[in-house]
Design a protein around this nucleic acid. Structure first.
Lengths: 182, 182
DNA sequence: GTCTATAGAAGGATAGAC
DNA sequence: GTCTATCCTTCTATAGAC
């Protein structure tokens, strides 16, 4: 019998790549570094991910799964749409304050590969569009208008871009806005 | 006789490099592309800019000069600090709405070279720190508190990151905040 | 022995630097 | 233009599990 393939190899490689891509940027990290960090051979890497572009796309897909898991968890104890919106924003603030925070993975990718339209870039844009749509939906569910949704989205964008020390300001402001509009 | 050096060569090269760096990113653009766009020889490029890192630093220095010229011009007809703050923000909004807008050059560089600490990265950080300090100064000049300055900075960060369609929302909101605090 | 894994060299393109 | 280094990718050689 042949040697049985190690289970979870794809996840190991993807986790290693995701860590490097997020920390240093996709362009800054070479495939050799990914191989070294994953502790596997180049053959295995290219077996699971035929190209760096597909590895980058898988990285963003993983980042999206993690974000959705984290957001779902945060919205678990929020009763109504207003509480959910506040919970979503303070969950983002928690991420921004986390040590090792390097910005939003999707916005970072679109900055690194601006103007390109590969699979990963479309995935990044789709995530941002979907998140924006979810903000619109939550605001609309309790009768908030488009202006409020725009302002919330502005705060979210500023929250991702700004220094962690400003995360509290963003959360408090969003809560104030949302409660005042009720 | 030796050929007399063409005047303005450095500016020509830097302008070409700046356009490419801003549009596609510093990492995405090779020195060969810069040479081709500038229409000069490679040795001339390296005579004026000994390395790509120094060319990138010069690009950010040029971007800063342009921003300061543009901001000074915008603040020309603003009478007090509150009007100046509003003028500053709507000047940023004008840039965001301009076709070919690709984000803030300094924030983009820090995203592309995150974690690095070369001359260009320090210049980018210095620009952001100085701009933030100017916001603090303008807010403080008419008795605004730190919270208002934080919120203005949040709006500015969101303005740079967000879609151009939201620029008007940011300006109107900032104006509302500033006038209400008076 | 057979299959899969890793390690490393090779190929081809492109990068920065002179 | 050239030189060297590095990047992504492929391929070869070898070791290890079945």
């Amino acid at each position: 019998m042949a040697r049985t393939p190690a289970p979870g190899t794809r996840e190991t490689i993807l986790t290693a790549a995701a860590g490097l891509f997020y920390e240093h940027g996709v362009r800054a990290v070479g495939m050799a570094q990914v191989v070294e960090a994953a502790g596997c051979g180049k053959n295995l890497l290219y077996r699971h991910f035929p190209s760096k572009a597909e590895l980058a796309a898988a990285y963003l897909a993983l980042a999206r799964r993690e974000r959705e898991r984290s957001a779902t968890e945060a919205l678990r104890w929020a009763s109504g749409p207003r509480e959910q919106l506040i919970a979503l924003i303070s969950e983002i603030a928690d991420i921004v304050r986390r040590p090792g925070y390097r910005g939003c993975a999707f916005r970072n990718y679109l900055t690194e590969f601006r103007g390109e339209d590969d699979v990963a870039a479309r995935a990044a844009k789709a995530y941002l569009d979907d998140t924006r749509a979810e903000v619109d939906r939550l605001v609309g569910e309790w009768g908030g208008d488009g202006l409020l949704a725009d302002r919330i989205w502005l705060i979210i964008n500023g929250l991702y871009a700004g220094p962690p020390s400003q995360a509290g300001v963003a959360v408090d402001w969003a809560r104030e806005l949302i409660e005042a509009a009720g």
